[in-house]
Design a protein around this nucleic acid. Structure first.
Lengths: 198, 198
DNA sequence: GTACCTATTAGACATTTGTCTACAAAGCTG
DNA sequence: CAGCTTTGTAGACAAATGTCTAATAGGTAC
């Protein structure tokens, strides 16, 4: 299980130095979990129990709209954090399901252990701020892309930034994530499929 | 100028208790500024100097696309913070202009004073985390709306949540913010203009 | 007041995207 | 292998949205 932690440490240390004491605290509070494909690790209508770090694998957020269609609002792969953060922190009912699209290796920490760590670690808040800043910037980029780019450009960009995504994530999730129908994504993919993509 | 600070204190205290010492520190580090209509308080291509709190007035973020068209990515009114936060914190070059659409009353703090406050205030980080969480949740809602709602529904929602906005903000900014052309917004507005809107 | 802006609306037409439906390919089960 | 389900593709048409252009209305300067 050690590679779970080295992945997390590497991820954090890209942003911020991580004192040895914090590493030990992380090893005690973050529990490794293997979630097989199609596990729902947090369900809509419930208060999120854990803050999740994806070591490896693909996950998504989704909810049901008024017609019971699944709306996929986010898709990501490890390594990175992936949590209904606001509802986890405030312990309010989340409206989103967190779904393992593939087998996933996770590290997760409970709300109580976050509280405890906040008392012992002097750097936890700094790290939290950095992560929130990073996610905020990602979301701003995504909003800009929704405003500026056509559906085709958004799809092209997604392929460019995450070339393996289409190999692991069903297209209907990707279509929803891009804000278009599956019919239209299929149309957009046609030019790509002849040649450089198999 | 005291109403500037009471507005900020009220805003913060909706979220978190604000010790008297922090109030004093805020009065020393946040400077009141009156920015007349059409002031650009931070320009694209430069490192943001200040973290801004809008006491009153309407502001927007915009940048130029490849064809030199203005893209408005955000519009907000006071009271709230309004800053290119990521670039302000990391002191990197921002790609966005911050523009006062109307006369604006602002409180702003320099990067150096943020550093200083971080050392004296024990609650600054907590407050930063809360604000970031709040803004992150707002952005997630906006992404969801871009995915789920039609242009008409987004416009209707904007009118509902900010009924005064259309009275103070030119429609071309609103169109860009909604991710549509001005031509199309004009089309959407037609049903509204007969009757309940003057 | 006249001339000149700027903001907004709108017609005509093109393009993008959605809806509904059907079908084919791939995977799963017994 | 046969049957079933899931996933992706696609035709035909409709609706939403963009492009280009022009027109109108308000405000501002002189």
């Amino acid at each position: 299980m050690q590679h779970y932690y080295t992945t997390l440490f590497d991820y954090i240390e890209q942003i911020l130095a991580l004192p040895e004491a914090d590493k030990e605290s992380i090893q005690q509070t973050f529990k490794p979990v293997f979630a097989p494909k199609d596990t729902i690790i947090e369900a809509a209508g419930q208060i999120p129990h854990y803050h999740n770090f994806i070591v490896s694998g693909y996950m998504r957020n989704f909810h049901l709209d008024k017609n019971d269609n699944e709306i996929t609002t986010d898709i990501n792969d490890g390594p990175r954090f992936f949590t209904s953060y606001y509802h986890f922190m405030n312990q309010t009912e989340s409206n989103e399901n967190i779904h393992c699209i593939t087998d996933c290796e996770l590290l997760r920490i409970s709300r109580e252990d976050v509280e405890k760590s906040a008392k012992t670690s002097s750097t936890l808040k700094d790290y939290t701020i950095q992560i929130l800043q990073k996610h905020l910037e990602e979301d701003k980029t995504r909003i800009n892309d929704m405003i500026n780019l056509t559906a085709e450009e958004r799809y092209e960009k997604l392929l460019r930034l995450k070339p393996n995504l289409a190999r692991h994530v069903p297209l209907r999730y990707i279509a929803s994530y891009l804000g278009i129908t599956q019919r239209h994504l299929s149309r957009l993919r046609k030019p790509f499929s002849s040649g450089h993509l198999k």
